[in-house]
Structure formats: C-alpha cells, structure tokens
C-alpha cells in the first residue's frame, strides 16, 4: 500500500500553546480516516497543516508534496470542505460552477451538472448562495467537490448545523458519488456515530497528541465492552478496565487488549461504539 499522507514529529505552536504536539501518522490510499477529538484538541490545526494553510514544524508530506510550500500543486489533487458555511454568500450557483471550471484543471463540469440534477439546487441555478438553505449549500459544495478528480478529500465538520436528513444524505452521497479505491477521505466530526460505519480507520486526538490510531477492524479486536453486575463486576474490575459506567444498575466496562475468554465468563461482550471508546480514552488521558 502507498502512503498518501505521512507525518513525522509534526508540531504547531501558537505562542506558548502547543496546538499539535509531536504527531506522527500515515494515511494510506483508498481509506476513509476519521479524526476525532474534543473541541480545541488540535484537529483543525492539524488539517490546516495538511492542507498547507498553516506552516508547521516536523516532517509532513501529502501526496509527496510539502503542503505549505507546494500548496498550488497540492490543491489540484486535494479538495476540502472546511465548514458548511464557507461558500461565498454573494455568488450565484452558475457563477460558482463557471469559476471552479476556469481555475481547476481536474474539475468536470458535466459531472457537477449531473450531480446537481439530483439535488434541489438544480432549479436554483440563478440563485445566490445566500438564498439557498444550509442543506442546499452543503449539497452544492459536495457536488462541486465530487466533480473534482482529486486524490484526497478533507472534510472538517462538513455537516455541522445540518438536519438529520441532510446529514445522512451527505454521507450517502459522499460514498456513492465520490469515494472509490483510488480516492482517500479524511474527515473530522463531532457526530461520530453518524460516520463510524463508513470509516476504515480512526484516529483520536487530544491536547494536540494522537492517543489512538487504528483501523476499524483492529479496533473491534483491540477493545471490548463487558456488561456485568454484582460480584462478577468486582472480578472484572480486577482485570483493569480502562473505563466503567452504569446503565440501569448494570456495569459497563471497557477493556483494551482483552482476554475474551476470561471476560465472557463474567458477562455479555459487545463491540464498543466509537463514541464510548472516545469518551473512555479522553477521560483515561485526563485521569
């Protein structure tokens, strides 16, 4: 497999604050990587470094390029949606398509038109972005992005503030219209539960450090959730769970690198949700 993104010892300081602290990771081609972290964890800073929007220390290579110094070359092969609200509000839908077509060598107008036909934006070609609903703006942006033949797509909270129907549709379209084995997606979001079934890889970031970097398959192997109660719970507690919580009088314990046989004797085993694992990991670091 080929690495699309390679980071070694990447750091970014803002004055005395270290937003990204000695981070190393790789993203391989054809993967969908979720970057999950609480507010202020350094997610956006890390993405900006990857996109060449901010300078950083350490070694960072994206598609074999130095993102900050070779930003123009990089942007031919990378797309990003930084936020739902970044399309200029004054521009008309048609003008936006004209502009992207004229500056982006890898943009296919035909594909964008075909994708837009499937959305509500199709009948609003003469509308300005400010006249469209938030959901329509997201559809428009995704249609443009999906029509760009890019190797890497970076999404930073792409569905923030959208209603549940648009959010579901956004990720469904992302998979059907954009993703294939030649393309790679890096996505951050707070709504982990909505993307966990599309991810192939996951990374947790907290206080500028990466505290977990696994494939989703390995995650199911490495972590298990035990539901138990009473004496069994005390026994399980001796096995060193990384987190514990109560639900309806039952204890839910999360184990890393578990002895499944031993745990199975103590109660019911489940694969933990990414959200639960995330909370456990962040609290574990804080404790």
């Amino acid at each position: 497999m080929t690495s699309l993104v390679t980071a070694r010892g990447v750091s970014k300081q803002f004055g005395r604050v270290c937003a990204v602290d000695d981070v190393s990771f790789e993203i391989e081609k054809g993967r969908i990587m979720g970057l999950i972290g609480p507010n202020g964890a350094g997610k956006t800073t890390l993405l900006k470094a990857l996109l060449g929007l901010t300078d950083c220390d350490g070694e960072l290579s994206v598609l074999g390029l130095d993102p900050f110094r070779q930003r123009k070359e990089l942007m031919r092969n990378i797309c990003f949606i930084a936020d739902v609200a970044v399309l200029p509000r004054w521009i008309r839908v048609g003008q936006l398509l004209d502009f992207v077509e004229s500056v982006h060598p890898n943009f296919s107008r035909e594909k964008a038109e075909a994708l837009l036909k499937k959305t509500k934006v199709d009948k609003r070609r003469d509308s300005k972005v400010r006249e469209l609903s938030k959901g329509m703006v997201a559809q428009l942006h995704l249609s443009i992005i999906a029509a760009i033949d890019a190797k890497l797509l970076v999404l930073d909270e792409p569905t923030l503030g959208l209603d549940i129907i648009f959010r579901k549709e956004f990720y469904a379209n992302l998979l059907s219209d954009y993703f294939d084995e030649e393309r790679t997606i890096l996505v951050t979001t707070h709504q982990v539960e909505e993307i966990e079934n599309i991810l192939t890889d996951i990374m947790f970031i907290n206080d500028g450090r990466i505290i977990l970097d696994e494939t989703m398959d390995a995650l199911a192997e490495s972590y298990v959730e035990l539901m138990t109660s009473g004496e069994q719970a005390d026994k399980a507690r001796n096995l060193g769970p990384i987190a514990e919580r109560d639900i309806f009088g039952k204890k839910i314990m999360l184990f890393e690198k578990p002895n499944r046989q031993r745990l199975a004797e103590l109660g019911e085993l489940h694969t933990p949700s990414v959200a639960d694992l995330f909370v456990a990991k962040i609290k574990g670091v804080a404790a």
């Binding site: 996109l51 929007l53 930003r71 123009k72 070359e73 942007m75 031919r76 797309c79 990003f80 949606i81 930084a82 936020d83 609200a85 970044v86 399309l87 200029p88 509000r89 992207v100 500056v103 982006h104 060598p105």
Partner: peptide, 17 residues
C-alpha cells in the same frame, strides 16, 4: 470581505495561489 464571511477557506481550497 472574504475573511469576514469565511469564504477565504473556500477560495484557498482551489489551486490558485
């Protein structure tokens, strides 16, 4: 204007220096 309405992030996502 482009910074005020955040559209700078969109403009900078295109291959234009």
């Amino acid at each position: 204007g482009e910074r005020k309405d955040k559209s700078i992030l969109f403009w900078r996502s295109l291959p234009v220096t």
